[in-house]
Amino acid sequence: MDISFKNVSYVYQYNTPFEHRAIEDLSFSVKSGSFVAIIGHTGSGKSTIIQHLNGLIRPTSGSISIGNFNLSASDKPKNLKELRSKVGIVFQYPEHQLFEETVAKDIGFGPKNFGIGDNEIMERIQQACTAVQLPNDLLERSPFDLSGGQMRRVAIAGVLAVNPELLVLDEPTAGLDPRGQQDMMDMFYQLHKQKKLTTILVTHSMEDALKYADHVIILNKGKKYMEGTPTEVFANKDALSKVQLDVPEVIQFLHEFKERFEGEITYSNQSIKQLASELTNQLKGLTNNE
């Protein structure tokens, strides 16, 4: 699904003393099938963007198109339900949204709401469980008896069961242990490739943005601050630190190396092994030149 934001502003409690401008004159586009990371501090407008993506709110000014759907201050799509069946949003701590008696019912809730037949729902539950690597014998258990990581997988399976074309992930790995974080992100990346999804990842993790995204958008105080490929964006360490954002740790280290040894290595997705060997060559080269 192609997405485009054109000069979008959103004001909370418009025309009241509590008026608060959350995003301002924001324009960007996301190509169908791409993996985009949106990064910014708390209060930079990330959550407001997410709420636009499935029509929970409409822009105060400007216009948004998501596939064939258009949103603007005057344009309320008649078929919001159809939009929401195509846009799956995994909110922060999605396990807080679980409510059904059994895991199967919770996963099936979305498709049921969209009028999918019972047989099809059963199939989708199966597929969603496979996708999030949730063992089948948990299906008849109460979701509240599961571990935190399993609960989160159930919640995500519920979003996937609707078969979205656009998947929006808001800090999906928060609170998980290191392996849980990596497994979860690898799973989303695999789904992204397999199902040819368009994926928007809202994150604080520069490391994840670097590892998975094709395109990065940096927000600051409701405005677009930078955008580009991860390597392009993260090459601008100074511009990022101006808005108090860090670069990924590996790039930070290369900067510190450069300051200390005056040897420069550009980051281009090298493995840690490759980096160590390039840095070693630099060290040796520096000595030979002296």
């Binding site: 290191p178 740790e249 840690i272 980096l275």
Partner: peptide
Amino acid sequence: GLDIPFVAKLAKEF
């Protein structure tokens, strides 16, 4: 299920 920090990994490669 745990890991070590980036800097410790890099040290290992060195």
